[in-house]
Computed example of a mutant assay.
Amino acid sequence: MPLNDAVGTVVPGSDARNVDTVFIAGQVRKWAGDLLDVDLAALRDEAAASRDRILNARA
């Protein structure tokens, strides 16, 4: 809390699931809770490959 600060109350308790719509430079990037023009499976694969490269470099 503080209840007298709406942003300070809401923002820390929020995450991406609480965002319905996003516009970037006038372009819709998220609508009705769904990301647009994003291949989530490919993004997950890229993130996992990046993690693996980092972990292997430390070994």
Rank of each mutant, 00 (worst) to 15 (best):
I24H: 11
M1N: 07
I24F: 07
D34W: 13
V19L: 14
T21M: 09
P12S: 06
D15A: 08
A57H: 12
N56S: 14
P2Y: 09
A57N: 12
G33R: 00
R29V: 11
A48Q: 12
V28K: 03
A16M: 05
R44H: 12
A47V: 04
V7F: 07
N56K: 10
A49H: 08
R29G: 03
S14F: 05
T21R: 09
D34Q: 15
L36F: 06
R51D: 02
D37S: 10
D5E: 07
A32L: 08
A47W: 01
V11C: 03
V10K: 01
G33N: 14
T9S: 03
A41H: 12
A59L: 11
S14Q: 04
G33H: 08
A42P: 00
V28W: 02
N56D: 13
A25D: 15
G33P: 04
I54G: 01
D52R: 15
A49K: 09
N56I: 01
G33C: 06
G8D: 13
S14V: 05
A32I: 02
N56G: 08
L3Y: 05
A42K: 07
L40H: 09
N4S: 14
A47H: 09
D20H: 09
D39F: 09
D15M: 03
T21P: 00
A48C: 06
S14M: 15
V7T: 02
V22K: 13
V28D: 06
I54V: 10
T9I: 05
D15Q: 00
R53S: 02
A16I: 03
V10L: 12
D45E: 10
G8S: 00
L40F: 04
E46I: 02
N4V: 10
R51H: 12
V28T: 14
M1H: 14
T21G: 03
I54W: 03
A42E: 11
D52L: 13
D5F: 10
Q27E: 15
G8M: 00
R58K: 12
T9W: 08
V11I: 14
N56P: 01
R58G: 05
R58W: 09
A16E: 05
I54S: 01
A42I: 06
D20S: 15
S50D: 03
R29P: 01
R44E: 01
G13T: 14
T21A: 11
T9Y: 13
N18K: 09
R44K: 12
N4P: 02
V22L: 04
D5K: 12
L35C: 06
I24L: 14
R17P: 04
N18M: 11
R17G: 15
I24E: 08
L55N: 12
D34H: 01
D52Y: 05
A32P: 00
A41S: 11
R51P: 00
G8R: 03
A49S: 06
N4C: 05
T21K: 06
D5S: 09
N4D: 15
M1I: 15
L3A: 09
D34T: 11
V10Y: 05
E46G: 02
E46C: 00
R58C: 04
A47G: 02
V11K: 10
D34P: 01
V11A: 14
A59Q: 13
G13N: 15
V22H: 07
A49M: 11
Q27D: 13
A49Y: 06
A41I: 09
K30C: 00
R17D: 07
A47N: 10
V19M: 05
D39R: 08
R51A: 15
D15S: 13
